[in-house]
């Protein structure tokens, strides 16, 4: 179940799941940007398993509470060992893995959209080397501009601060393309569908 920050439940269906072609395009684009992607069932356990598998033995895992996905999705994860929901400065310095939700994903560009304003998602999606992001397939739009056209966008509380993340941080300034600069070196996207 999706809900927005205004607290009301509001099922949104931006791209019909039948539009499998968007999902395919999204998958392709994510790998083109250097990210990885997997599709899991809409269940808290599946989210936990996907995150733990990708994080492998790396700890601690920082978690930013979801604001758009139901908090239930991160519940089983929260009780795992080495998972932190209220990190301190030192945790941010050293944690190798950060987990956030994304409130939308963009097929054409392989991007996920993360709200970085009020919550710690801004840090969690930025400082650890591995960023795992969970997004619902229903929140897939075709192009970045589609997001700006949505009614919700006009609402003052909605997406006040956000970032389109398209792959890990990268640079071509040192000669060849290098992935992993000041932000995450790896981006893993878990799509709920």
């Amino acid at each position: 179940m999706m809900h927005n920050t205004d607290g009301q439940s509001e099922p949104v269906n931006l791209v019909s799941p039948a539009q499998q072609s968007y999902l395919d395009q999204f998958r392709e684009q994510v790998s083109a940007t250097g990210g990885t992607i997997e599709f899991v069932a809409r269940s808290p356990e599946a989210v936990r398993d996907a995150v733990l598998a990708r994080a492998s033995s790396k700890r601690p895992i920082l978690i930013a509470e979801p604001r758009y996905l139901s908090p239930d999705y991160f519940r089983p994860l929260r009780s795992e060992e080495g998972v932190l929901t209220h990190p301190h400065a030192d945790d941010y310095r050293s944690a190798p893995v950060g987990v956030t939700e994304a409130f939308a994903a963009v097929a054409r560009t392989g991007s996920v959209c993360v709200d970085i304003g009020a919550d710690i998602a801004g840090y969690v999606s930025l400082l650890p080397r591995l960023h795992i992001v969970v997004v619902d397939a229903e929140r897939l739009v075709f192009r970045p501009s589609d997001l700006f056209r949505l009614e919700q966008f006009a609402r003052p509380t909605f997406h006040r601060d956000f970032v389109f993340i398209s792959g890990p941080s990268a640079t071509a300034d040192m000669g060849p393309l290098v992935r992993g600069v000041h932000g995450p070196h790896e981006l893993h996207i878990v799509v709920l569908c």
Binding site: Q29, A32, T33, V106, R108, T109, G110, S111, I116, G117, G122, P144, H159, R160, D161, F162, V163, F164, I165, S166, G167, P168, S169, A170, G183
Partner: peptide, 13 residues
Amino acid sequence: PLTSYTSVIRPPL
């Protein structure tokens, strides 16, 4: 298609 980060922010965060 997009560079790694396109941020839209309304500071102060």
